[in-house]
C-alpha cells in the first residue's frame, strides 16, 4: 500500500467522523443532505459484499466494516434520532436521475457479467455522483456551515488522493482499473468548484455562502 492510498483512506474516514461529530454535538443535521448519505450507504453496501466472499487483510476488513457502520449511523441520525432537524424541503434532488442511469451503465459497462462484479461497478459509478444531492442542497440554500465544508473538503481530498494512488500503481505495478479511474476523475471534477470556494473563503475564516 502506498502513501497516497493510506492518506486517501484516512481522509475518507476523517470526513465521515467529522460529519458524525457535527451531527452529534449540535444534535442537528441541518444543511446535510440525507439523500447523499443514503446513497453512500448504498455505495458501501453494494461494494463491500465481498466481506462475505474474500479475505484480503485485517486492515481491509476492519476499514470496510467501519465505513459501513459510519454510513448507517449517519443515516439513522438523519432520518431517525434527529429527523426533526432535517431540512427535507431543500433536500429535493431527484434520486431517480442518478439511480436509473447508474444502474443501466453498471449492467452495460463492467468487467464481467456476474452479480458481485455488477454490484461493485454499480457502487463505483454511484459513488462518483452520490455527493450531488449535497452540492445541490448547498447551491439551493446558498450557504453551508463551516464544519460541513470541512466534511466536503476531506471527502474531495480522498478522491484526489485515490487518483494519485492509481497513478502510482500504474507506474509501479502497471495496474489500473479503467472503471475506477474514469469514475474517480469524474467525481474529483465535481469537487473542483467547491475546493476553490473552500480555499478562497473558508480557509480565510469566512462562511461559505454563494452570491
Amino acid at each position: 500500500m502506498n502513501i497516497f492510498r493510506i492518506l486517501g483512506d484516512v481522509s475518507h474516514l476523517l470526513a465521515m467522523i467529522i460529519l458524525l461529530v457535527k451531527i452529534w454535538r449540535s444534535k442537528s443535521c441541518a444543511g446535510i443532505s440525507g439523500k447523499s448519505q443514503v446513497l453512500f450507504a448504498i455505495v458501501f453496501t453494494s461494494r463491500y459484499l465481498d466481506l462475505f466472499t474474500n479475505f484480503f487483510s485485517i486492515y481491509n476488513t476492519v476499514m470496510k466494516f467501519v465505513f459501513l457502520m459510519c454510513a448507517y449511523i449517519t443515516v439513522y441520525l438523519i432520518y431517525g434520532k434527529f429527523r426533526k432537524t432535517f431540512d427535507n424541503e431543500n433536500d429535493s434532488f431527484r434520486l431517480e436521475f442518478l439511480l436509473i442511469p447508474v444502474t443501466g451503465l453498471s449492467f452495460l459497462e463492467n468487467q464481467s457479467f456476474t452479480p458481485l462484479e455488477i454490484l461493485w461497478t454499480f457502487s463505483i459509478y454511484l459513488e462518483s455522483v452520490a455527493i450531488l444531492p449535497q452540492l445541490f442542497m448547498i447551491s439551493k440554500t446558498g450557504e453551508a456551515e463551516t464544519i460541513t465544508t470541512h466534511y466536503l473538503f476531506f471527502l474531495g481530498l480522498y478522491h484526489a488522493l485515490y487518483l494519485a494512488n492509481w497513478i502510482w500503481r500504474y507506474q509501479t505495478e502497471n495496474y489500473y482499473d479503467q472503471i475506477a479511474v474514469v469514475s474517480g476523475v469524474v467525481q474529483t471534477i465535481f469537487y473542483c468548484d467547491f475546493f476553490y470556494l473552500y480555499v478562497t473563503k473558508v480557509l480565510k475564516g469566512k462562511k461559505l455562502s454563494l452570491p
Binding site: 492510498r5 483512506d9 475518507h12 465481498d50 474474500n54 484480503f56 487483510s57 481491509n60 476499514m63 470496510k64 465505513f67 468487467q111 464481467s112 461493485w120 485515490y162 494512488n165 495496474y175 482499473d177 475506477a180
Partner: peptide, 10 residues
C-alpha cells in the same frame, strides 16, 4: 490479479 486487486481498495 487486477480483479482481486481492485477489491483490496476501499
Amino acid at each position: 490479479s487486477p480483479k482481486e486487486s481492485k477489491h483490496d481498495e476501499l
